[in-house]
Design a protein around this nucleic acid. Structure first.
Lengths: 337, 337
DNA sequence: ATGAAAGCGCTAACAG
DNA sequence: CTGTTAGCGCTTTCAT
């Protein structure tokens, strides 16, 4: 057996008829509102279960005209976005909001994903790592409140919640300096999101530690292969005692290349990553890395989205910046020097 | 400025009033139906754009009472599910169906994700790698057609679309045998989904190749750490010349452990993975692996879901099995022997 | 080519 | 405690 096929789904009317009550009473019972007798309630619930009845969320929202629903655009093949989506569910549930997801994929550009959401009458939309051009951002923001997470977009019409990227790299540099390192290089992320700010964070931190003369940026990228390539370049130019890397994937690639050229980590060279992704936590990688505060980012994003949707007056900056933390593992140590 | 805040979203009525036509005409124009003058059409479209108007998908579906919408439950932190979701969008778009996503996360069990979808009046739901207990599966299937993808659930009420897991490992074994290997071990996935069938595929393939005596299964698991642990065990017991591993993550861990104990891959030992994940494609991993046919899996899943939703009579088995392919890269080669 | 009116499944007054 | 009624924003006859 299985599902009947083209059979109509049960409605409140069906339940009402079968339970011998009015449709409004069924409504009251289904949403647990006060105003129904205990046994009526029970009978209705029994019939509903028997019929496999589920209230139609859309009809409900349509009527209430208050969607209490947040749209989320995310890259379904982007691991960090997965962590953020999980955090958003955690943040939205307790405050009574649902999430409706719209994914970007290689064949489904962000514009399409956002468009989809706009038809869903979300109270607000949250864009993870948005790369939408300003014009599209404006267009969306005209229709619904827009909150961008984990991307430093500069747009007067949208709210932004993101990590203090520069500070993350600074934490890594300070940690290495405290261990006694001076020749600290940086493998950057090229034109990847956040790369510029992390690069700047490295430069500033080096300067702040009086290491202007030691600044050395090697061009890398977001992938393992970028890291491996960059590592080979690092070695070819008077080896530093430590290197801060754009992200964990890139750092993993660099680690691999470093080790396969005979170096010991962290004995000969220390390495830090960024993201605290699952990659970094693998026992034999065990990478010292910078962790973004996912829960905090998500809480702030949901809160801001709800406030905008409710028309709350917001004082202060549209950009909220969350500090990262350093997770020390085993790829950093004192230099032998 | 940004979004006005608690302002009401524009409706068809607003557009109609501003354009000086009836609401029905706006409806005709917005969905591109025939029956509107060219200049009227233009004026309406102009007003809609000016007002930032978007038709309400929910109201539309509610009225049409034909959702043309497929619900998808997926693990948002599961990389392979990301690939499948991308494939589902590709498959559903051309046949005029939308997707509505509901994610499982560490705090959001599959039951909750499915429940959410049931209120959305999807025509059918597609469950990726479902681990729902039979009772829950039955409950869902009573309400809406259910298609499970990438998991060999055995349930009379649901359709299944999955890869011929056993065949995948058999491809790997045959490839190794063709290269001249005989001592081929298998690092399994423990109790992970698909592990049992892949283990069986290994055993059968060995037998078919007359290598019953060489069968050796080492208990592993789905993660890199599992692979590393298993690899150390492999080495401690009379080293095989090749090993087929449960999945790419596990294989990567095994590779790492093998190499760090001084072995050359594939010179001293060949290794195969499973999944053809991004991991396998990294240049310095470059893993020979088994690829699932994502597009085919998704096409079949969407087709089946639509057929069930439309009440099409389905003859033949409820389970559709898609053959995998072997992707030969550089972790396999002839044994030195 | 255009408009009026009914109703999708539900919630929210309001009556009894 | 229970039923009646009026929409939410849209599509869809059916008139005009």
């Amino acid at each position: 057996m299985g599902h009947a096929g083209a059979t109509r789904r049960a409605t409140m009317m069906d339940v009402a008829a079968r339970a011998g009550v009015s449709q409004s009473l069924v409504s009251i019972v289904m949403r647990g509102a006060p105003g129904a007798g205990a046994q009526t309630r029970q009978r209705v619930l029994a019939v509903a279960a028997e019929l496999g009845y589920r209230p139609d969320t859309r009809a409900r929202l349509l009527r209430q005209n208050d969607s209490r629903m947040l749209g989320v655009v995310f890259g379904v093949q982007h691991a960090f976005h997965g962590d953020l989506v999980a955090g958003l569910y955690r943040a939205a549930g307790p405050v009574g909001h649902r999430l409706t997801l719209s994914a970007t994929t290689p064949d489904r550009p962000e514009r399409v994903a956002v468009d989809d959401l706009l038809g869903d009458r979300c109270a607000a939309v949250i864009l993870l790592g948005s790369e939408l051009p300003p014009a599209d951002l404006s267009a969306a923001a005209r229709i619904v409140p827009v909150v961008v997470v984990a991307r430093a977009v500069r747009h007067e019409a949208v709210d932004v919640v993101r990590t203090a990227e520069a500070q993350g790299v600074a934490l890594a540099v300070d940690h290495l300096v405290a261990l006694g390192h001076r020749r600290i290089a940086h493998i950057d992320g090229g034109r990847a999101p956040g790369a510029a700010e992390r690069r700047r964070g490295y430069r500033d931190a080096m300067r702040r530690n009086g290491l202007d003369g030691e600044v050395r940026v090697i061009s890398g990228g977001p992938t393992e292969d970028d890291g491996a390539r960059a590592a080979r370049e690092v070695l070819s130019g008077g080896r530093p005692s430590a290197v801060t890397v754009f992200n964990d994937r890139c750092a993993t690639g660099a680690l691999q290349a470093l080790r396969s050229s005979g170096l010991q980590v962290p004995l000969d060279i220390s390495v830090t990553g960024y993201d605290d992704s699952r990659l970094a936590r693998i026992t034999f990688v065990d990478l010292t890395t910078v962790a973004q505060d996912v829960d905090r980012l998500c809480e702030l994003a949901v809160e801001r989205a709800m406030d905008r949707a409710a028309g709350v007056e917001i004082t202060g900056r549209r950009e909220q910046i969350v500090p990262p933390t350093l997770v020390v593992r085993s790829t950093t140590g004192a230099p032998v020097s």
